[in-house]
Write a protein that binds this DNA or RNA. Structure first.
Lengths: 337, 337
DNA sequence: GTGAAAGCGCTAACAC
DNA sequence: GTGTTAGCGCTTTCAC
């Protein structure tokens, strides 16, 4: 290995052996130093190593240490759609916990169950220490291979049945209940819930159930419109049917809320005069729309932090109970209903 | 290693040795198979390995192969703020290129130059094959260590001087020029440009320069308000000063645009009657605001794809010219001016 | 066309 | 308190 006399030297190619030689100790000692095993290391060697490592700009090779220690200090985060307003806040919440710990985040997108499986397998082969997954499928058997792989897994946003991994979501049922109650008290006679296919995710079902329950209690009919691709043209039919009643639309997620808002604006349907609009997740700009939107806002940052903390616990080898942790969502009553 | 008779077996702990033994070949042959070196492999062993690997659910250990081959198939992506509307679309664009290639993305956030340095060093120690960086600092010397590390680096969104790494941005100067021209043709007599500190990023300067040039040509004074933290209270002063003139505000990025819009709404200042508003990056909801916003919209997905492609070229060992690639932005003229 | 063997850079017993 | 040593699972010459 080259010696350097000329100042700032390449952050490069030095190995633990070079450091050991330079410091006049064995590489075991260097390794101990690097891993913070100072229990019975003399202050002198400690100090010496500190300066030598700094001088050499030595950077340990993670791959080698991971190979040996079986710890990569990397976790995988798999979301359904990276550009969905959900993902960034979630990832930021996760990063707030992991980054100070020196744990890196591998993000990947699983747009279909098959693609999700691919990226998960890929993540496993990278030996990630753990995985945070917004699952595409509600069925545990689709994730059998994850259980078999014996890697810590946390779910976020969606549940699977049976619940074989711990999960963090918001309090969907409760929050939707409160919103529904508040909205229906304004005297609406018809409700349309626009959602992606309920069967694919149990929280969707919960949000719909909440409306049904409140609707029943207050004697207001609740209609369901399941759409697959944020294409909301079908709401024309419903609008026609209820045109002489005071009606309100609930869009069950942020994308649908936006799609619906755009559709209504495009068709020059006034909100809330002709039809009321409320929904889930305005990603900080519901207040800017015309009119400002009444919404349930999930605390994504908190969800991310919580799921990351629980994953870190699992990775540390401590058990946690396999259950759903619910993070309270905020409800913003504004002018769109 | 256990043999399995009972169907789906743990995706686990099999090594290349196990596969070799099971297939009755040497691990060298298995390795060749895994890496697609079929040049002179008999069809029979090829077929045999295929089935054995599938049967065993063997998954190669990336850390081991990375240690030996010096290729991790991971790239680092460092952005200033993960929750900024910029990041998700960019990352998605990058993922569109890398995911099919089996290249994983390590995302990290660099909120300050110091933190950015930390995460970059961390990334280097993970032996990422390359780095995409939205640089916090405009000075190349802050990234000397990256050059020394001899790792492929691509910049995105912002330049550094001298330009020692290739970079992908939008056509800031040109797009802003077109917008400015179109806006001023509406007869505005005063312009306020709200931006984060210009000195920190040359594209900010470009956007301001564009306004200055157009303003000069059309004889309209252009004022600059530099704010540090999306706190736009100071625009009160300017508004008072120009209250009897037809005035327009240009917010130089999406966050500032939102902050400004919120501030104006909060102070019940009508747009565009009292003051016009336009800006950069509405992240798909500028059309929903009241009134719909006139903006320059960067093609973030395209930027992400482009920067990822160029990085892949660099990683493949091919040279690219160190220059700035500009992706045309869209200009949306709407009702806010 | 395939195998043997030498490491990649690190960790963790186990010595002393 | 520190050194010796045996691998972790893979890739890649170099033989044959």
């Amino acid at each position: 290995m080259k010696t350097d006399e000329m100042g700032a030297l390449p952050l490069a190619n030095y190995t633990i052996n070079d450091v050991a030689k330079q410091a006049g100790v064995s590489k075991a000692t260097v390794s101990r130093y690097l891993n913070g095993h100072f229990e019975r290391m003399s202050e002198t060697t400690k100090a010496r190593l500190k300066t030598v490592i700094a001088d050499m700009h030595y950077v340990p090779n993670h791959n080698a240490s991971a190979l040996k220690s079986k710890r990569t200090h990397q976790i995988g985060v798999v979301v359904g759609d990276l550009a969905n307003g959900y993902a960034p806040y979630l990832v930021k919440g996760i990063a707030a916990i992991t980054q100070p710990l020196g744990v890196q985040i591998l993000v990947a997108e699983g747009k279909t169950v098959a693609q999700e499986r691919d990226v998960l397998l890929n993540l496993l082969s990278q030996n990630v220490d753990g995985i945070i997954l917004q699952p595409r499928s509600p069925h545990a058997f689709d994730y059998q291979f994850l259980q078999d792989a014996n890697v810590p897994v946390m779910l976020v946003d969606r549940l699977i049945a049976p619940l074989v991994f711990a999960c963090v979501t918001s309090n969907d049922r409760q929050a939707t209940n409160i919103l529904a109650q508040a909205v229906l008290e304004k005297g609406y006679q018809q409700v349309l819930v626009i959602a992606n296919p309920l069967a694919e995710a149990s929280v969707r079902q919960e949000r719909f159930d909440a409306w049904q329950n409140v609707g029943q209690k207050m004697n207001v009919p609740v209609t369901l419109l399941e759409v697959d691709d944020d294409e909301v043209d079908d709401l024309q039919t419903w609008l026609t049917r209820v045109h002489d009643q005071k009606a309100v639309i609930f869009a069950a997620n942020g994308n649908l809320l936006l799609a619906t808002l755009k559709w209504l604006q495009h068709h020059h349907i006034t909100i809330p005069e002709t039809v009321g609009l409320c929904g889930y997740d305005d990603w900080h700009f519901g207040g800017l729309a015309a009119p400002a939107l009444t919404v349930v806002n999930q605390d994504l940052h908190q969800i991310g932090e919580t799921v990351a903390k629980q994953l870190m616990t699992l990775i540390a080898g401590d058990d946690i109970t396999i259950c759903r942790t619910e993070i309270p969502a905020d409800i913003h009553m504004r002018q769109s209903v």
